[in-house]
Amino acid sequence: MIENITILGGYDKKGNKEAVEEVVIHREEIFGVVGPTGSGKSSLIGDIEQLAQEDTFSKRKILVNGKEPSYDDRTNPRKKMVAQLSQNMNFLADMGVGEFLTLHAKCRGVKDTCVDKVIELANSLTGEPIKKEHELTILSGGQSRALMVADVAIISDSPIVLIDEIENAGIRKHDALQVLSGHGKIVMVVTHDPVLALMTDKRIVMKNGGMDKVVTTSLHEKTISQKLNKIDELMLNLREKVRRGELVNDISVDDI
């Protein structure tokens, strides 16, 4: 069981020591990674994905439960600790949703009774219902993202989930993060989106390829996060209305 991971700082793009020397992330915690383009967000995620041992460009070291992971833990494909989700990922398999999830469950040695649970969970994250008999490749961006989140939560038993920008996905982002951390996972999310950034517990600020500081989300920010979530929900509902060809007469912003 993974209780926490530790990132030990290395060097930034200019070869200076990183300002942040150590970050510990615990199970069920949600961490954000923020910073401008080219600041090194993706390579930080890459280091965690590979459980780097001072063998990448940044020379960072990743510990699991405070210890160096074994060579087998790092390289055995069946023991992969990290699952990834990103905006650029697509379903390319030419299969039906049900058939695909059954195959995935079989590959991970999970009972295929979980297939219905995955679809049900995915449908709680997106406005457009996904059905078992749908073809994977015709799913919309929102449906695909929702299905990927539900699948990672239930079938992939990787304890660490790395999310790289899912802001324009058309899913209930707030719920998606909650679902993942609720399944006992360590969640890290790269984002510029305040809806996501403010619902994290802490966020690592990147600069010049190095970890510059770690900001703890304030109580005030948490309140703002809840308001943003309501705006997000409102936008999602409007989106569905427009999609169904309905007229938008009014919006209620009273409780925001």
């Binding site: 069946r78 990922m89 398999a93 995935h104 590959c107 990927m148 079938i155």
Partner: peptide, 17 residues
């Protein structure tokens, strides 16, 4: 692998093995 879903990555790995 960064272009496909986590599930497909895991299936692909398993098929190779």
């Amino acid at each position: 692998g960064d272009m496909i879903s986590q599930a497909e990555r895991e299936i692909f790995r398993e098929k190779i093995l």
